[in-house]
Structures are given as C-alpha cells and as structure tokens.
Write a protein that binds this DNA or RNA. Structure first.
Lengths: 334, 334
DNA sequence: TTGTACGCGTTATCAA
DNA sequence: TTGATAACGCGTACAA
C-alpha cells in the first residue's frame, strides 16, 4: 500500500488536513511545519493518489484515444502528436484499438466512459455517426480525426483533402501534362469526393477540360495488385500521361502493375499518391505524393480538447498538406 | 455530471446499497426489484465509475506503458501486443513517451505511479538500472522489454539475440560462405555481445575458424552512411564474402555504401541484418534479416504482468526470432 | 495557524 | 429482502 497523507500526519503528529495544505503550499501553514512535513513526505516516498483526487475533483485529467490498429502507420504518428501535447499539459492518455470492428469501438468508448476520461479522440472511425446517438450518455467532448461527421458535441480535425489533391494535380500540370486521370476509391466516399474535387478544381484552374472518361474507380474488393492491373488497362486505352491517385496504396499498386507490364514510370506514366506512407519513400521509383501532417493532426486534436475543457469555443479545423516530389513524376514523354 | 447509483436509488425509491446489489446481480435482491432497477439504470444511462471502484478496491486495472517514441517502428508493434492482451483481460493502458530522455522517463514513471497503475511495462529503456533504486517507492511490478537489468521486482521479456544471430549466420554458412564477418555496434554493449556470441556459436558449430580480424566495429557517432563506407573499406581488405550485421540500419548503411562503390549485393557480398524493420523490405535489394517478433514481445510482457498480478511466480522470458530470407544473400561468387 | 467534519461514488459489513 | 454506516484518499468549508 502506498503512503497516504494520513500516514504522514501520524508521523508528524498533525492532522491530515495540515499535511495536505503543507504539500500544496497553502499560505496559512507555518513555514516551519511546511518544511518539516515536506521533508517527511519526501523521506516516506509519498506520491498523491490521482485516483482520490479525480474522485473529488470530478475530473481525471485523462483522455481516451481510440485508434484502429497500431499496424496502421497513419495512426501511429497521430498518437505521437496527441501524446506529446497531452503530456505537456499534464494529461495522461488511455490508448485502445478498435481493430476496425464497430462492436469493439463501442466497447472501447464505453470503457473510456467508465474510466471517466475528460475527453475522447477518435482516429479514422468508420462510424462517426454512431457517436451522435450515444453522446447524451457520454457527457464528454469527442474529437474526431479525419472523419467529418456533423452533429452536436462532435468536433473534428481533418486534413484538407481538396487542397492536397489540388497540390498534387497542379504539380502534374506544371510538369506539362494535359491528359491527367483520377484514380478513386469508392469505399471511402467522403474523402474520395473531396480529393476528386481538388483534382477537378486544379484542372479547371489550368483551363483543362474535365473528361469523365478519365475518372477511374477500381473495384475495392480486389487487392491492390489486381486493382492496379485493371486500372492500368483502362488508363492505357485513354491515352493518359499522368494520374493522381486517391492514396499511396492505390498508387503503388498501379506502379507495380506498370513494372509488370513494362510501362516506364515516370517516363511513360507519371503517378502521384496521397498520404505519404512509409513505403512511398522505399518503392522504386520513390513515389511523389501528398504528405499528410499526421503528427500535427494529433497535436491539433489534443489542443482542441484542451480548449474545450477550458470552456472555450472551438471550431472544426483542417490542416494543409504539402507535396513530396520524388521519382514517380516527370514531364510527359513527347 | 454522470448518473450515480444514488440518482438511481432516488428514482427507484430504494437505498443506493440496493441499487449497487441489483446491478451486480446479488442473490439477496428480489428478482422484481432487480429487474426494475436495471431497467431504470439502462434508461438513465448509468455507467459505474471506475474511479470510485479503483479507490475502494485499491486496484485500478490499469497499466502504464513507457515507450521511447512513436516514431520508432519497433515500439509501435510492441504497443499493439500489449494493448491487445490488456484489452482482452479488462485492463486499460496508459501510453507515454520518454523520447529517450532520462528525465522524461522518470517523470513518466512518476505520473504512472500517481495514477496508481497496477503495473508498468517499459520498452527499450536505456536506464533500466534506474528502476532498482526507485522500486521501494513504486510498489508495483515493472516488466522491461528488451532490456535485461537484474534486480528484485524487475522482470524482463526479451528477444533471443543469441538464437537470432545464430540463425542469420547459419543461413550464410548453408549458402556456402566461409569467411563471414560480424559488424557490431559498440553503444549497445549487451545485445551486441549476445549477437556476436550467436555469430561465434554458429561459426564454431560449422567448424569454421574464429578470426578476430573479421569483427568490425563502426564508430557509433557517425551516421549510417559514413559507417557503411568505413566498414566497407575494412571488409574489402579482409576478403570477406558475407557479413552479419548487428541490426538492419547498419546493414542498410553498408548496402548503400556497396551501391556507391559498385560492389554487387549479393553477388560480391551477402548481407544479413537483424530486427526486420519496415525499410528492410523496401530497400534494393530487399534485406535478408532476422525478424524480431515485436507484437509477441508485447503480448508476453502483458501476460507476464497478468501473472504477476495474480500472484503467480514468473521467470524472465526470451522469444525466438525467425529468418526472413530476401534478396541480399546468395551463394558466394567463385 | 491548525483541526474537525463532510463529500466525491462505490462496495462490504452488519443490523433490521 | 433491504437499509444504514463505514471506508478508500483527498481537498475544503467552517470552527477553534
């Protein structure tokens, strides 16, 4: 059993109230007893119980962080950002994985509620709408990262998909490409729509025509190799010199298909991805891609939590991406 | 404020004791009132407070996990393993980074102690010995991962460096290599000694001579490129056809130096690493390496914690590695 | 300047 | 079958 203020009180021959005050530097305690008690506390190895303090204060200085899985590299850096800000502000972080399983995600949130966390941060949830119905029960602010669901008590921090996609497509345009394709992903409808919108904006801004036949939608069920091959077939028929892909995995699948088929990247086809996952740097050729500031997303989410807990007004935030130019893009061949 | 059993008691016109019992399925409460109270609790959105339960039970069902940084890919999978087992067993995990800063590491442990975690798991700590002195204060089991410090209350789970290194060297021997070098790292003395021991065992088992001039020790201060070049110089003078490296970063540095110098890998020099970091798969050629079962390390550490909390005897554990054969090894040239 | 008494939400003991 | 009371460790209003 850890040492309590009562133990110290007994040892010092004072009441536990005096000990409590002395340790907290209360002005109404004589300098002498304060010093004596502090020395004693030090010697006895006293550490206050955050559990008892939490019960009394009705506040735990704790937040719950829900991630999909630690195997997802995206998630990991977000965790770093959240934890960094939390630690600096004196908050502790509960971490739990949902493994992309809605039931587990509910269970995790339930557990956080039992633990009386002061706030919850959720990354890449597929069921943001679920929270709306449970929010009256969990009387706690919930910040969603990269998951824009509307609704009261629901706050969000997200990457600027439109701006990011625009950046990637502009890069291709500046290289001299004119027939640029968009390779989407239908099982992420919202962000897919936004990234496609960024693509279209960039095309329009450059005065390039929007050709619907240049929008490709691989079948999500297939693995990235199959998808890459299928998409490549279509791309080759369309006489496209460059493509912007919904994400890096899609882009890498396509790049591998090109290698299989003997299509030179970037000479014959330039490819731009989105996310900047670790693999993007290591594939051959290294992938030009739109970088998501993951650590910053985590930081912002936690800062938003702190603001909310301080009773401040907050509004949803988006974070700008930047472009990582690598080896998968070049001017068109002819 | 969340709903408490007192609120329910008031609404049901019974004492809070009855509510507590009804919710916990105590046998001495009539089936009727039990049903009535449970229904009420459901409607009012009651969730018991783990904080209050913890205070009473003197047990939080919480553990603290100290990592270096989320930027370290090794760490991340360990977290996954710990969290998986913890969640299954009904424990919640506090996660905190030390950023390899001893002062922060102390602060983190101190915070965990304040939170009254039931146990602490520490990955890749450089100051395991620090815990020995603080252990009387933190009356809690501490499990170290990949950091074998001896001492009471200190438990450890670690990868089997000797076995792993042996595996890597055996592979080279089976390919037909006879002059095999060991590239060490002096700033990790303990694991370096064990991996070197595995190298020596494998050589001896195969009846090969142990030539001290085949042991290379790059200067740790230099970056991996410099180290790679320096080591390569020495290797070329020694007429070695294959090397086993302390870790993947060292191996990759060497591989890059080979590319710079026009030394063909694996034709002219076979290279084996240790760790199996993500990059190992992506470099050219992909690195043959000894895989550390990171997730499993985390699982074992948490299982050890559960055993300890159940009052069972535990002993330190090591986990076997396996070999990932990729493109950086081949039979010797001549 | 210090101490007494109470309450935070829960469970356990004892009594009714 | 149910209820009153105490306790976990701490902070605070009030009293001395």
């Amino acid at each position: 059993m850890p040492v309590t203020i009562k133990d110290i009180a007994k040892a010092a021959g004072v009441s536990h109230t005096t000990v409590s005050r002395a340790l907290r530097g209360h002005s109404a305690i004589s300098a002498e007893t304060t010093a004596r008690i502090r020395k004693l506390a030090q010697e006895m190895g006293y550490t206050p119980s955050a559990v008892a303090q939490s019960l009394l204060a009705q506040r735990t200085r704790t937040i719950g962080l829900v991630i999909t899985t630690t195997a997802d590299p995206f998630t990991v850096q977000v965790v770093g950002g959240v934890e960094y800000v939390a630690q600096t502000a004196g908050y502790s972080v509960f971490l739990s994985s949902s493994h992309n399983d809605p039931d587990r995600e509910i269970a995790v949130v339930e557990t956080f509620h039992r633990r009386r966390v002061d706030a919850i941060i959720v990354t890449s949830s597929r069921l943001g709408s679920l929270y709306k119905s449970r929010l009256d029960k969990i009387q706690v602010p919930i910040v969603l990262i990269n998951n824009q669901e509307e609704g009261e008590y629901l706050y969000s921090v997200a990457v600027d998909d439109v701006q990011g996609a625009q950046l990637g497509v502009q890069h291709l345009i500046e290289l001299g490409h004119r027939r640029i394709g968009y390779v989407g992903l239908t099982n992420r409808p919202k962000s897919n729509r936004r990234r496609r919108q960024g693509y279209e904006t960039a095309m329009k801004n450059a005065g390039l025509p929007l050709d619907p036949s240049l929008i490709f939608s691989p079948i999500p069920d297939h693995d990235i190799f199959e998808r890459g091959h299928e998409t490549l077939e279509q791309i080759l028929q369309r006489n496209v010199t460059a493509v912007f892909c919904y994400n890096d995995l899609t882009a890498i699948g396509l790049s591998l298909a090109c290698r299989d088929r003997g299509i030179a990247v970037p000479e014959r086809l330039s490819i731009v991805g989105f996310d900047d996952i670790d693999a993007a740097m290591y594939v051959t050729p290294p992938l030009t891609t739109v970088h998501q500031p993951r650590f910053e997303l985590g930081q912002l989410a936690m800062e938003m939590v702190l603001d909310l807990l301080n009773g401040q007004e907050v509004q949803d935030k988006t974070v700008a991406c930047h472009l990582e130019v690598r080896g998968s893009t070049a001017p068109p061949a002819h």
